[in-house]
Structures are given as structure tokens and as C-alpha cells.
Amino acid sequence: MNWTAVGAIYRFEMSRFFRTLLQSFISPVISTSLYFVVFGAAIGSRIDEVEGVSYGAFIVPGLVMLSVITQAISNASFGIYFPKFIGTIYELLSAPINFLEIVAGYVGAAATKALFIGIVILITASLFVPMRIEHPFAMLAFLLLTCLSFALLGFILGIWASNFEQLQLVPLLVVTPLVFLGGSFYSISMLPGIWQKIALANPVVYLISGFRWSFYGLADVPIAVSLLAIAAFTGICLAVIWWIFRTGWRIRD
């Protein structure tokens, strides 16, 4: 591994984040607060409790996941799409680095940004609702794996996209619905019969379930299944990226 190169990419990407630190910081805080106002106060006051946890506290893990997944995808996809768009990708292609180093730099930076925002949201949320974290290490592990795996997905999308519309397409049409329907704001057990089974086809359900378990010990699916699901997802993304660089798909002539 050429760690100097990985570090150079990582620092370069992070410097863009720090240049816009205020925006990076303010927007998740505002959107989280809005979610709390709408879901927590307006709707939540009629829901009361879900499986023994106040509704406000119940949605915290889902909210964190929602932002982390969105941020990881958008940061990573933009991070690699932008050099493609403005042409600076020539530099990466002509540098003595392999695909692992490029991925480690871009995905590492995107995952770091997502993690940072996830933590900011957790802190913001703790100002609104009383929260407890029963399994802090599991919580961190889930958070890290989610940042990483969705940054990998974002990286793939960024390579695939040939214009800005495509860059927005998958997050908008696929990821956001999956996250919203993945139990961010409700427990799968609240769904009527058949929909509980259908919901299990949504990979995000396993993530949110596992993540929520690390907070309150509540899970829609067994924790081991959650872990397995996210590991499998990460593996698939890595395999796709490996294939992309092997064949040079959409990057190298």
C-alpha cells in the first residue's frame, strides 16, 4: 500500500469539507431539529411510546442512519464524480497507485465526513430527548460500518454517473425510499401482516434495527442477522469496485 498517496487523497478531500465546515455542520443540525419538531412533537405526541421507548427517543437511531447514509453516499459519489467531471481524474490514473489506494482515500474521507455528521446529529438529538446507549461499542461499530459501506456505494455511483442528474438519481429514487421505509420512524412490527415480510427485503431494515438495538436493546431482526447483512453489503460493494478497476469501466480507456 502506498500510504502517502492514500493520505494525500484523504487530506485533499477533507480540506474541501473543512472549507465548508459551517455548511456541513449547520445543515444536519437544522434538518434534525426539523425532524424532531415534525415527528417528535407534532406526530409523536399522539404516538407516545414504541415498545417502551418514548417516540422521540425511538426515532433517534433512524434519524442518524438517514443522515449518515445520505451523507456517505453524496460525499463519496461527488468526491469521485467531480474529478471525472472537471478532468482532474487524469492525475489519479497516471499516478503510481492502485484501486485500493484510490478507494481508501476517497471512501475513507467520505466515511469520515458522514461519521462526523452522525455524531453531530446524535448530540443535537440528545438536546431534544432523553437518550440512552446500552451497547456503545456496538453502536460505534454499526455507525462506522454504515458510513463505510454506503461511502463505497456512493463511490460506485460516482463512477457510474455520467452527468449530475444521474448522480442524484439513485440516492433520490432508491436510497431515500429504502431508508424511509426501512423503519427510521417506526418499528417493522407496527406494519400490517404481509408488509412486515416485504419490509425484510429492504437491506436498510437490518441496519436500522441493529443500530436501534445498540441504543435500546430493541430489534426487529436478530442482531447477528443485522451484522451479517451489513458485512455482506460491504462485501458486495467492494467486489463491484474491484471489478470496476480491473476492467477500467467508465474511468480508463
Binding site: A8, R16, R19, G87
Partner: peptide
């Protein structure tokens, strides 16, 4: 390599972008 097109990150500072290239080529 000096490419034909002026491919540069528009919002980046000169110093950072030059340092970036050195790093990507694995030089301390």
C-alpha cells in the same frame, strides 16, 4: 504529465493542488 486541457480543481489553492500531486505520487 501536463495534459492538453486545463484540468484543475477551480476552488482549490495552488499550493494545495501541487502538494496533492506530489503526495499522490507517493513522495514525502
Amino acid at each position: 504529465l501536463v495534459p492538453q486541457e486545463v484540468n484543475l480543481e477551480p476552488f482549490e489553492k495552488v499550493w494545495n493542488t501541487v502538494r496533492f500531486t506530489r503526495g499522490v505520487f507517493g513522495r514525502p
